[in-house]
Amino acid sequence: MAENLNNSTEPADVGEAVIPPHHSEWRRIARVFVRRKISLIGLIIVVILVICAIFAPFIATHDPLKTDLRDVHAPVSTKHFLGTDELGRDTYSRIVYGTRTSLTIGVIAVTSSGIVGMAMGMSAAYFGGLVFALIMRITDALMALPGLIIILLIAGLVGGGIVVVTFALAFGAIAPTCRMMCGQALHIKQNDYVLAGKAMGMGSVRMMVTQIFPNAFAPLLVGMTMAMGMVVLAEAGLSYLGIGIEPPTPSWGAMVNEGQAYILKNPLLSIVPGGAIMMMVFGFNMAGDGLRDAIDPTLRGAI
């Protein structure tokens, strides 16, 4: 008996006095990331990039916009870690500031499309009937639009720039988010706790905010993390085509484009931003992958 009491993990006949240990969801998620090395690497990349974006002025060694025509196409040195470009701007500093551009556009586009898409999807699923039909037809229409051509059209009409690009990318991400949220919410709606809420007279807003949203959000978060990678890639593509970020602002896509002309003379100019894009997309996708495994209840216990 004495042996029993010494061992705290044993819910022996001490009965009601002992309450079982608390299992935290966060610890489980942390465990998944620790177990899955590739997801951990993805997460670390994302964290490093976020730090770069926030503390860009401290991490960069030069002003990314300052030209120095006496020192163009400088080689790698202790002064310029990655050399300089055709206008003598420090490539390393431009890459650091480029993180800011990419992440700003990515975060704004993904969150704004997320909010709009999730609200639409949840309303469609919750109210059903006419609301459902209407919202689903709108998303059908949105999905039928060729995204790139619309962006080119908008850019052609009002010019490019960060605002237009962000808006265009956000617009394109609404329909898929809406669809996903709608599917999730429809699934969650079938649970008895939604019925229990109705039986106690819970209003629609409260129901959506406290019952449906928290349960639908986790998979959506995974989708949004992966969407970040896609948006970053799309922004780079647009900038590469010259309709994204306007020239002086450092943008990885634009840097690849500009460096292309000097690919033989100074290959770092396009290889480094290209690699940065790849890293960011990889980072978000891998982190998203890990997140999906972490929150998948069917894997509970297996990982």
Binding site: N191, D192, Y193, A196, A199, M200, G201, P214
Partner: peptide, 20 residues
């Protein structure tokens, strides 16, 4: 009136919101 009616459901797993 709903205040005066309570409901107990079958499945103790799906009848409670797992995030609350």
């Amino acid at each position: 009136l709903r205040r005066n009616m309570g409901a107990i459901f079958q499945d103790p797993y799906s009848s409670l919101n797992p995030r609350q």
